[in-house]
Amino acid sequence: MTTAAMKRRTPTLTVGAILVGLVVLLAVMSFLWTPHDPTRVDAAVRLLGPTGDYLFGTDKFGRDLVSQIMVGARTTLYVGVVAVGVAAVIGTPLGILAAMGPRWLGEFVMRVNDLVLAFPALLLAIMFGAVFGASTLTAMIAIGIATVPSFARIARSGTLQVMSTEYVLAARAAGRSRFAIAHRHVLPNVAGLLIVQSSVSFAIAVLAEAALSFLGFGTRPPTPSWGRMLQESQELLAVQPRLAIVPGIAIAIAVLGFNLLGDGLRDRLDPRLAGRR
């Protein structure tokens, strides 16, 4: 990247990247080292306040909060990747198809889309959990499916915009087929929009996992998850608010990070600003 481009990078993007980087760093580090075994139950050290050995203290089972947050970061990232992956892989081709295919097909796809959009994501995830058994994976596939409409809509509107440009006409004048135009011309030019949508959806997925785990439909014990840490802190909220505050802040950092990253990327990838770079 040139220095000129560095200067134009918005602080939003930088702050977002730092916060997301922090979560990624925690997750990666947790594979190599954690201060304690995050799942080790030890009645002797239960409900300790912050000490030198236990930086944020321990929970009601004597598990180290720092270690749980670190391993929980993995769950958070896993969740985001699965949900966004499902949504992008299904939603993007659907949106492009809706824009490029025959009109009746486009209308049909978009109406089904509206139907899915009208259905609350969390309710869908709870249904999935009830039918297929509660796990991080089923919850996230459900959240991913619920996010498909956002990707389909954005891919469709981006495609319509690209299809009306003269270079698509020029590509047709050069003898390109429709499929080749979708692949070579449309996809690269809507990729920016989809990347932005991904990071925003990532944040929503992280929050959804926390909410589902809180309700008991998400990550099963003993896998550490920030949402479940919140849930387990519930009964002790009045006496040990620390147990809720620590995972709460972690969730807030991850969600804020991905949202800022999305906003920052949108500003940088906005096609209307492309000429000025």
Binding site: E166, R172, A174, G175, R176, R184, H185, A274
Partner: peptide, 21 residues
């Protein structure tokens, strides 16, 4: 036929090329 037997040059060179290629 297009691009081989017949081809076309458009008015607006700023928009007739794919910006991402």
């Amino acid at each position: 036929l297009r691009g081989r037997d017949m081809s076309m040059v458009f008015q607006e060179p700023m928009t007739a090329l794919n910006p991402a290629m």
